[in-house]
Amino acid sequence: MKWLNLLKANTRKEYLELKRYLPNTIAMLFTFYIVFLGLFGTIQFIGDPSTQDVNTQYVIVNYIFWFLTITVINSIGYEVINEGMRGTLEQLSMSPMGISRIMAARLISTTFINLIIVIVLLYISMLTSGQWLNIDVITIAPILVLTLISMFGVGFIIAGISIILKQVQAFLQILQFILMGLTFVPLSLSPVIAYLPFVKGIDLVREVMIDGLTWSQFTMGDFMLLGFNAIFYFALGLGVFVYCERVAMSKGLLAHY
């Protein structure tokens, strides 16, 4: 019950802040759409006409996931930096729920709210391009959940690093492009990258949305890798975060003001 209250409180806060920073939220969505139009236009006017449709579909899925990873992973880093500077990070750290649980609640609530935005953007993108993807919710949902768990792991790592390093903004800017690499590069390029965080999940979602695959068409290896990826990166992220929290508490780094 306490967990649920924690989650509800953080979801409400995320929603309220999104509402209070409405111009900022609108600007973010507008930028997303403009960049999408740029990508779409490039495919239409410069790209190979024979692969135009498939390329557009790839761009929609990859771009949507990139947006999601940025809003989930990058924003948790910025949030930790801001909270450290404001002093609220210390206040959160004094909660008997524990800062790692609060961060988990933040990650889940941010994802939940951004997922709604992403779905709207997905439909706007499909409408603009005229390319309708296979939105098979039953197949996509479990893959997405496991992919998000892997993403949360990376989010925890970024949050942990942001607690102990004060000048992490430059890294967060570079991170956007690393995330772009992880979401855009197809698995067919090198099977090894399937072991990187959330790459396998995004690849499977791509197969469902573009090629129309269902659960029964995936191999046991796909499921194993997806599950392993989620558990491994979540555990790693949590471990790194807890370690960083200990370092911050030893060195007095919970406040950056």
Binding site: L6, A9, R12, R20, Y21, S95, P96, M97
Partner: peptide, 16 residues
């Protein structure tokens, strides 16, 4: 960016 009441409610939520 939260109101007085929202702050109180949020911190209560963070304690479960």
């Amino acid at each position: 960016r939260l109101t007085v009441k929202e702050n109180l409610e949020y911190f209560a939520g963070n304690r479960g």
